[in-house]
Design a protein around this nucleic acid. Sequence first.
DNA 1: GTCTTTTTGTAGCGACCACTAGACAAATGA
DNA 2: TCATTTGTCTAGTGGTCGCTACAAAAAGAC
Lengths: 210, 210
Amino acid sequence: MVSSHDIKDAAGQASKPRGRPRSFDRETALEKAILAFWEHGYEATSVSDLTQVMGIGAPSLYAAFGDKRSLFYEVVREYGERYGSFGDRAFAEEPTARAGVERMLREAAAEYTEPGRPHGCLIVHAATNCTTSEVEESLRERRNANIASIESRIRSGVAAGELPADVDAAALARHTGAMIQGMSQQARDGATKEELEALAELAMRIWPRS
Amino acid sequence: MVSSHDIKDAAGQASKPRGRPRSFDRETALEKAILAFWEHGYEATSVSDLTQVMGIGAPSLYAAFGDKRSLFYEVVREYGERYGSFGDRAFAEEPTARAGVERMLREAAAEYTEPGRPHGCLIVHAATNCTTSEVEESLRERRNANIASIESRIRSGVAAGELPADVDAAALARHTGAMIQGMSQQARDGATKEELEALAELAMRIWPRS
DNA sequence: GTCTTTTTGTAGCGACCACTAGACAAATGA
DNA sequence: TCATTTGTCTAGTGGTCGCTACAAAAAGAC
């Protein structure tokens, strides 16, 4: 794989950039930033905290990632791909909406309590109570988009006849979203993987038996 | 009713305090502080914000409430009594654990979307991502205590024979807590009272029919 | 009135915030 | 070799944070 810092000429061949090369690896620094924002949230993570955990000086951070907000947005995108994609994967790989949601909840129980990294979901917790309301709003939109995506999967399940026609897709989707968010909060508050799995199993009882 | 600022002598009679009287009403100032912390959370509400909405100067605030943290703790206590007691009330007034939880969830739908005040629950949202971890911990303890109280009510329901003996009280209580927290998040994210009521009704389907 | 007690407004404390100017370092291109 | 380009380091910027010293103001006690 070609480093993203390389510059491609007209023929697509890699050539080294002109100036002094970066002294740190951008991806691993970004990973450290993900963990910091994940654990402490947007506001409570200062630029000084970030430079410390990323192991770089402030000017390097600003040169590589823009300001704090831009870095956070990049962190959110990257978090979504590295840690928050289990829901999409569940829907993509499971044959029915019900199986997809069931797997999503079960995997959330594991993801949100994984040892060695912050518990719960960054999208849910990293930007509550933000003085910068634009940041708070950006995560709110992501959460609501997730619920909309669940609803759309349920609707297509109804259309395919895999679920009864009188199913309230919106309510079922909101219920799933609320469970995910509740599980994330529980994980932050100390619940174990097993407790969250019991929660997920309990929550699935409201689903019509296909 | 006698003002709390009066000093009682040995005979219990009220007498006016010595120095310059307070120029503001402590209770209404506290109410303003509740609304501010409720809406923006502990960290995002600055002392400067507080003095503005409370309509007093910083020295008056510190004289009347101690430091920011003490004021927040008093706000949390007062919030619990004024806005967060519907759960206890539901358990006290409903005959069964099931009816208590059902009413608790339905009332949460209304409380968390009440017009003219912040949506969602202060205990859930006002101290996530706190640099002062003691403050974050204090609300965490309150949340977990609430779940423990629900579990205890379910256990006594099982003991009274109103619920099957094989009911998993801990899981059922955690489920209720997660639903409350999920509903609070949903309310913050724009869900309506009706949507939350549908959520509450859906969530109750996992309960054994007494 | 005068003394004492408490509150109020002004004004500012040191600490931290996000962010950056400017000098130097390390690479490429010619 | 030397100019050009880019990154890093030091050392700060103005602004806000929670909080408070100090003196004037407003009450009761004598």
